[in-house]
Computed example of a mutant assay.
Amino acid sequence: MPNDAKLLLIDRDQAAALLTPDAVMAAVRDSFLLHASREGHVFPVVREFLPDGAVFGIKSGGAASDKLLGFKAAGFWPANRSHGADAHQATIMLFDQATGRPQCLIDGNAITTARTAAAGALGLLSLARRDSARLHVFGTGVQAAAHIDYALRALPSLKSVRYTASDGRRVAELETQFAGRCDIAPAAPDAIALADIVITATPARAPLFETRDIQPGTHINAVGADTQGKRELPEGLLPLARIWADDLTQSRTIGELQWAPDTQAAELGVLLANGMHARSHALASDITIFDMTGLALQDLTVARMLMQRALENGTGTSIGWPW
Rank of each mutant, 00 (worst) to 15 (best):
residue 218 T to L: 03
residue 206 A to L: 04
residue 215 Q to F: 02
residue 177 Q to P: 09
residue 175 E to K: 07
residue 195 A to N: 12
residue 223 V to W: 03
residue 227 T to F: 09
residue 178 F to K: 06
residue 210 E to H: 15
residue 208 L to S: 15
residue 199 I to W: 10
residue 233 L to K: 10
residue 207 P to R: 07
residue 199 I to Q: 14
residue 180 G to N: 14
residue 171 V to A: 08
residue 206 A to W: 02
residue 175 E to P: 12
residue 194 L to Q: 15
residue 228 Q to L: 13
residue 230 K to Y: 15
residue 192 I to K: 03
residue 229 G to K: 06
residue 208 L to F: 10
residue 191 A to Y: 11
residue 172 A to P: 01
residue 232 E to W: 10
residue 205 R to E: 14
residue 184 I to R: 01
residue 166 S to M: 14
residue 235 E to D: 14
residue 206 A to Q: 15
residue 191 A to K: 12
residue 212 R to G: 03
residue 228 Q to P: 04
residue 204 A to Y: 02
residue 180 G to P: 11
residue 236 G to V: 08
residue 198 V to I: 15
residue 208 L to T: 14
residue 205 R to W: 00
residue 168 G to A: 01
residue 235 E to H: 12
residue 176 T to S: 11
residue 234 P to S: 11
residue 180 G to R: 12
residue 219 H to M: 11
residue 232 E to D: 11
residue 176 T to Y: 07
residue 187 A to K: 10
residue 184 I to G: 04
residue 164 T to G: 02
residue 219 H to E: 11
residue 185 A to L: 08
residue 226 D to G: 00
residue 192 I to D: 01
residue 209 F to G: 02
residue 186 P to M: 03
residue 182 C to F: 11
residue 217 G to W: 11
residue 201 A to F: 03
residue 172 A to G: 06
residue 169 R to D: 05
residue 212 R to Y: 01
residue 203 P to H: 01
residue 214 I to R: 04
residue 220 I to L: 08
residue 216 P to A: 09
residue 180 G to E: 14
residue 188 A to F: 00
residue 218 T to M: 13
residue 195 A to Q: 14
residue 215 Q to S: 11
residue 207 P to F: 05
residue 199 I to Y: 03
residue 199 I to A: 09
residue 205 R to Y: 00
residue 199 I to C: 12
residue 172 A to L: 03
residue 213 D to K: 07
residue 236 G to E: 10
residue 189 P to Y: 13
residue 221 N to K: 03
residue 180 G to V: 06
residue 204 A to Q: 07
residue 203 P to N: 02
residue 176 T to A: 13
residue 231 R to N: 13
residue 188 A to E: 13
residue 219 H to L: 05
residue 221 N to R: 15
residue 182 C to T: 14
residue 229 G to T: 05
residue 203 P to S: 00
residue 178 F to P: 06
residue 167 D to V: 14
residue 215 Q to N: 10
residue 169 R to I: 02
residue 223 V to E: 06
residue 210 E to Q: 15
residue 179 A to G: 09
residue 230 K to W: 07
residue 215 Q to I: 04
residue 166 S to G: 15
residue 197 I to D: 08
residue 183 D to Q: 15
residue 189 P to T: 10
residue 238 L to Y: 12
residue 228 Q to E: 11
residue 167 D to E: 15
residue 186 P to A: 01
residue 212 R to Q: 12
residue 235 E to C: 08
residue 202 T to V: 03
residue 166 S to Q: 15
residue 177 Q to W: 03
residue 208 L to R: 06
residue 230 K to P: 07
residue 209 F to Y: 09
residue 181 R to S: 11
residue 194 L to K: 12
residue 181 R to W: 01
residue 170 R to Y: 00
residue 201 A to Y: 04
